[in-house]
């Protein structure tokens, strides 16, 4: 069985819909991982002991095990405790939490690297500890680690292919479904790869623009 790409245009709409889902899931999970990362970083650094220790265990577990395994845990685990979420929500939560842990590591280092004088000055000006963190320290910290966070988001895009395994009809599963009908795995997986590559280029472009804007306002 050789290659035959003439069949591709017929199924292009399915693949493009898959692309839209992949982009949607990636953006939603990226936002969750970004804000989750900030919350986790604050918990890890300033949280009360009772919150900090379980979080540490959670972060340790999530950094030491494969994402695929975590997706199974979240998807089937939630069902087990009676929360029946649609697969794509479970996928977004799984991806988002996984990368939130990685982002949190970056943000923690950055928060510690913000000059102590910033916090002291903000406190002197009458801001509470929480306000000073939220309005003075965290914005500076996050800005400093935006490039590596951007790299995490690009990794997230590629890892979003994994949610096909729990049945989310994004790009990878769409390709699989088309292959089920056409028996042309090479052509359609290659097409899916090309789509990922293009989305990836788009994300890199956005990342460069954001980084440029931030470096100007400095």
């Amino acid at each position: 069985m050789g290659l035959d790409f003439s069949i591709v245009p017929k199924y292009m709409d399915v693949i493009l819909l898959g692309c839209a889902w992949t982009i949607g899931i990636t953006v939603a999970a990226a936002l969750l991982s970004f804000f989750g990362g900030i919350v986790f970083a604050v918990i890890a650094l300033y949280g009360p002991w009772l919150l900090r220790q379980p979080f540490r265990l959670f972060a340790w577990l999530f950094m030491g095990t494969p994402l695929l395994l975590q997706l199974f845990l979240i998807y089937f685990g939630l069902v087990q405790i009676g929360i029946d979420l649609p697969a794509f929500v479970a996928g977004i939560i799984g991806l988002g939490l996984h990368f939130a842990v990685y982002n949190s590591e970056l943000i923690q280092t950055a928060i510690l690297a913000v000059d102590k004088g910033q916090m002291e000055a903000a406190r002197t000006l009458g801001l509470s500890r929480g306000e000073a963190l939220r309005k003075v320290v965290i914005p500076q910290a996050v800005r400093a680690v935006l490039p590596p966070i951007g790299n995490n988001m690009i990794a997230l895009l590629k890892d979003s292919a994994l949610v096909s395994v729990i049945g989310v009809s994004e790009l990878t599963l769409s390709a699989q479904r088309v292959i089920g009908k056409t028996y042309r795995p090479f052509e359609f997986y290659l097409l899916a790869a090309a789509c990922y590559y293009v989305i990836n280029l788009g994300m890199e472009w956005v990342q460069r623009r954001i980084e440029r804007r931030i470096s100007i306002s400095r």
């Binding site: 890892d159 994994l162 090479f186 899916a192």
Partner: peptide
């Protein structure tokens, strides 16, 4: 660029499911 720009899962699928075609 190509390998880092596409998901590892898709690369595996191309090799395993698409390989026999070539």
């Amino acid at each position: 660029s190509v390998i880092r720009g596409t998901p590892a899962l898709i690369q595996l699928f191309i090799l395993y499911f698409g390989g026999p075609q070539i």
